[in-house]
Design a protein around this nucleic acid. Sequence first.
DNA 1: TATGAATGAGTTTTCATTCAT
DNA 2: TATGAATGAAAACTCATTCAT
Lengths: 221, 221, 221, 221
Amino acid sequence: MSAVDRLLAGEGQRPRADARRNLERLVAAARAAVAEVGVEVTAHEIAQRAGVGIGTFYRRVSSRESLLESVLDEVLGEAVAAADQALGAADPWQGFHGFATAFVRLRAESCGVGEALGGACGPALDRALSEVRERIRLLVERAQAAGLMRPDVAWQDVAFLLAAVATGPSTIGLRAGDLQWSRNLQVVLDGLRTTAPSPLPGAPPSQMTAIPTGGERPRTA
Amino acid sequence: MSAVDRLLAGEGQRPRADARRNLERLVAAARAAVAEVGVEVTAHEIAQRAGVGIGTFYRRVSSRESLLESVLDEVLGEAVAAADQALGAADPWQGFHGFATAFVRLRAESCGVGEALGGACGPALDRALSEVRERIRLLVERAQAAGLMRPDVAWQDVAFLLAAVATGPSTIGLRAGDLQWSRNLQVVLDGLRTTAPSPLPGAPPSQMTAIPTGGERPRTA
Amino acid sequence: MSAVDRLLAGEGQRPRADARRNLERLVAAARAAVAEVGVEVTAHEIAQRAGVGIGTFYRRVSSRESLLESVLDEVLGEAVAAADQALGAADPWQGFHGFATAFVRLRAESCGVGEALGGACGPALDRALSEVRERIRLLVERAQAAGLMRPDVAWQDVAFLLAAVATGPSTIGLRAGDLQWSRNLQVVLDGLRTTAPSPLPGAPPSQMTAIPTGGERPRTA
Amino acid sequence: MSAVDRLLAGEGQRPRADARRNLERLVAAARAAVAEVGVEVTAHEIAQRAGVGIGTFYRRVSSRESLLESVLDEVLGEAVAAADQALGAADPWQGFHGFATAFVRLRAESCGVGEALGGACGPALDRALSEVRERIRLLVERAQAAGLMRPDVAWQDVAFLLAAVATGPSTIGLRAGDLQWSRNLQVVLDGLRTTAPSPLPGAPPSQMTAIPTGGERPRTA
DNA sequence: TATGAATGAGTTTTCATTCAT
DNA sequence: TATGAATGAAAACTCATTCAT
């Protein structure tokens, strides 16, 4: 269920066109704002990005927290969809790989929403969370059973690793490029695999994705 | 240079003994507070933990942000020290491994300070940051030159990976155990290595660190 | 003039039937809402109770305050009617008694509207107010002239007493029962009379109205 | 216990002189503001009247509601003191009379605080409220036992009457004079008494207290 | 015309920072 | 100097009122 539908669920009848449009704008603005400035975005900022007044914000959304919750719910729903597709893949590792990519991308977008809401996000998200967990467990077990993933990692470890890989727009003065997460992910996938490392995306002989800040790029031997 | 020295630099004369003691307390309190409650700790909380009044806080520190900056500076200094020791190690991979462990632990402690300060942390930290960057570059190049680290990663990727691994006390409703970062790190190190994966710490035959939440642990084959 | 007529006065032409019906609903809803939840009822609540949209509310009523004013006007009109009937009574005291009862009941219903509007209710109500004042003066004078009401009270005092008696759903943790005002009124009437006190309503030998909260009822000798 | 002491109770040690002074100002300002503009006074208004910033308001008082609660507690404490003195009076009616006067005066000042806080004022006031109730019961029973108060009123009725008498700064366009409550009270006391009415305060041959607004005063025969 | 969506000023409260004691 | 009291900008949220549908 999309965040918009979720937020509309409480309403009695079907919303007017402008109301729905504003809600969509708010959800999109919230998602973008969270991705850019983090979960501490103010209600005003979100409203402004959405091009609506603060009054409209609260009319459509009931509270800042509930909006963030809905955004997170939406993201989790997308993760579940990706996992279901992955479970249908013939090759367990290919499936896991595809899911991991989708999951990390999603997480990079909605960066930190879950943590920010903490345990306080109420039972509203319990279903979505447990669905994601269940899928990850299945994907990990399937890959391990096929001998394609090292057997000494718990699915929880995998969850943490995938979450971690998406993290952090910057470190030690470096600013992450748009595809940093994909390079991080490649290393982690190689660490999880039973066999030898695959070449990083864009690794020699082709060019790697540029890193904007922070001086010289290495000569990737 | 320690955080304390750094903060004393602005002062005209040599500080009185009690002034210095209070400053030391503030830095230590800030570091602990950040590790425990996160970067959003209030100035009052830090002052209280340090056992000084808020007035003293600002007399010694000029602003909350600058104190956090100093904490980060101190952490970076420790990272540099760890790196220098690692560069002295006979085995390049052993050296890198030791540094990575120290770096991740430090980062887990000072969790998020860097990001919280954003790019706005001013030129004050430039030296420390570039020192860390330089060391990481050297460590990576040394390991790669020895054929012990895959050659298709940039040192920046390594920096991001190490930063990422330390992250996040929770994800998808799971709560990280104290040693989650070490399990994460092991996978990443294996992904970076040229050779086959090593067993995770605590992997069979010994027991792994328990994860408090989230149901059954896997049968680590 | 009814509240509805009053509010229609500003309009140019004669109102359409549905417009008038909506206005009547609004006034009735406002009156009920004020009686139930108090003068701080929101415009939305009144509109909802009236079964109209907030847009219609403002089309018909110009402002929340002016609607409350109209409610008060209506109540005052009813008070005037009660007074006129009372002035026609053969016995001056019976007349006053009847008016007092009606007035207090009205005031209990519209409790606090007058005060809430403060002195700011404009000249719109001047006529109604002075009509009520005039009637009370006449009733008091008539009763005093007949030697049935103590001569040392001013009609203003009587007005205040009657207003006061209707007041307050609670005090010192007690919650008023539905007929509290009638018991209060009885004491006040006895205080105003020239002769000895009459038994309270429900006083011995019959039962008094129960008071829900606050422990034991007295043994009404 | 005064409102100031009550609010200081939470604090660890004894407050600095300026802190105490500001707290006293806030309590006094709150009490005055409530008496003048009613319980819906804003925190800003109280702070402004007290001559302090809004920050100081919250530092001293923890919440607007808790300040009002303390004011009410103070008022109730004064009522209890008046009642205890009244219970010591030789003549039961004189005692009741004195208490009633004090109680009504207090209530006129703190007009409506109790109701505004509603049942939500927490158990903090339970003690004070039940103490007042108990005293009123005793005073009423004593007067009734001595045959000086009509036996068919419950002490709860008396409580409501005294509360009512203090009420309402205005009605039907009249503005209450400062001593309106005392004239109201006189009538009520006469209604409660077993014997004939006493002259109103200021009744002939002396002059009655002037009523500022609302036209001609009656010729008090 | 009736509707209800949109608006923004105003309310309570927090917290980084300044200043009197 | 050390203290903590005072400050006010800013955040979340409400509600009377306006305006597009």
